[in-house]
Simulated assay, not measured.
Amino acid sequence: MLNSKASVPDALIIGAGVIGMLSALRLHQAGLRVEVLDQASLPGKEASWAGGGIISPLFPWRYADAVNRLAAYGQKVYPELAQELATNTGIDPEYTRNGLLMLPGEEQALGEEAEDWARRWQLESQALDRATLAALAPAIRGAERALWWPSIGQIRNPRLVKALAERLRRLQIPVRTGVRVDGIEQTGGQVRGVLSSSGRLAAGKVIVTAGAWTGRLMEGFGYSLPVEPVRGQMILFRAQPGWLRQMVLSDSHYLVPRRDGRILAGSTLEWVGFDKSPTAQAASLLREKALALAPGLEDFPVEHHWAGLRPGAPEGVPFIGEAPDCRGLYVCAGQFRNGIVMAPGSVALLADLVLQQTPWLDPLPYALNRTPVPASEAV
């Protein structure tokens, strides 16, 4: 049964990850009636929950400006956003500005390109020799030099997800879980709602923030959008508070110390479709890479191992905007490895477009029918 006219939301958001929930919050604050749908039993339990929470692209100099502009926005607003959520929900997302140490590796050189990038984006950057590195991070062994970005922060993804869900609950923004969307309704090139496992749901606008499922969902709507799942696996060491204070990156592997002493070690990049099963092979690899960075981790147990599906998009540039031939159908997805850091900027751009306001940055690089950006190195 179609929802009644009196209850028809101004915007129906498909996907209750960080981007979907932030979009609901932003549009609600702008005066729209918003509802959120998610196929899972709990909001935010996919890539939003599974990621590392580093508030920076891992190799920002490899990305197009379209990625770095969104990332810079997120870096600016996260301290205030985390505080606002903690104040209004009692759940602290644990934003922590503990800096990022980058070590050279087989895949990662730390030459002029990285330092030039930091100067261009006005990011504090320090080159460390072996003695300075040892004094700063005694748990890290074997590196002759490093690049230190002290202003980079992190956020604890599961707590961010819980805080956003609680914020929406207190604002009485409906989040309907366990609802599968199967199709879209449109007439005359104008969206009218969706077809779902709960029946026909009318809406003034439909916003797809379905992460790795976005490409498949849009294909079901009759649109081709190159967003695909990319599995990433993590392990978690139960270490002691303060044992490692800085985030550490070498090649595609990193360590993220949480406030309670736990240390997250990631990650893998696997194109295996929608299979998000953790594998013993990945767990062994992640432990090996973690011990190579910080041998003392051998003294701590691995407490947890999990996998998630990132929404991969070409060159890591997300799709943000309205479908070219369907008014009222919007997408905000494809943030790939950088969903957390790009989420606030992505949502700000999406909201500007939905509300027909002057966008805070040029939307063309993110358009659904955009011309591909110049190819970057593997990200």
Score class of each variant (00 low, 15 high):
Tyr330Ser: 11
Gly183Thr: 06
Pro374Asp: 15
Ala109Pro: 00
Ala333His: 07
Tyr63Asp: 14
Ala163Ile: 02
Asn369Tyr: 03
Glu322Trp: 00
Gly51Asp: 13
Pro174Tyr: 10
Gly51Pro: 01
Ser376Cys: 15
Leu2Gln: 09
Pro324Arg: 11
Glu377Tyr: 09
Phe59Ser: 10
Leu285Arg: 09
Leu368Ala: 08
Ala202Ser: 12
Leu293Asn: 07
Asp352Trp: 04
Pro79Phe: 06
Ala139Thr: 08
Ala24Cys: 01
Arg310Cys: 07
Ala165Pro: 01
Arg26Ala: 04
Arg169Lys: 13
Pro314Glu: 10
Ala114Asp: 08
Arg119Tyr: 05
Trp306Asp: 13
Asn369Ser: 13
Val347Pro: 03
Val181His: 10
Lys162Gln: 11
Pro372Arg: 10
Trp271Val: 12
Lys76His: 14
Arg337Gln: 09
Ile207Lys: 06
Leu128Cys: 09
Val194Ala: 10
Thr371His: 11
Arg327Val: 06
Pro9Lys: 07
Ala11Asn: 05
Gly51Ala: 13
Met102Cys: 09
Met234Asn: 13
Glu219Phe: 03
Gln108Cys: 08
Val191Arg: 04
Ile320Thr: 01
Glu124Cys: 04
Ala82Leu: 08
Gln233Cys: 04
Val341Ile: 11
Ala137Ile: 02
Trp243Cys: 00
Ala11Tyr: 06
Arg180Leu: 13
Gly153Glu: 13
Gly178Trp: 04
Thr209Trp: 02
Ala203Thr: 08
Ala24Asn: 04
Glu115Phe: 15
Leu353Met: 14
Gly215Val: 06
Asp129Trp: 10
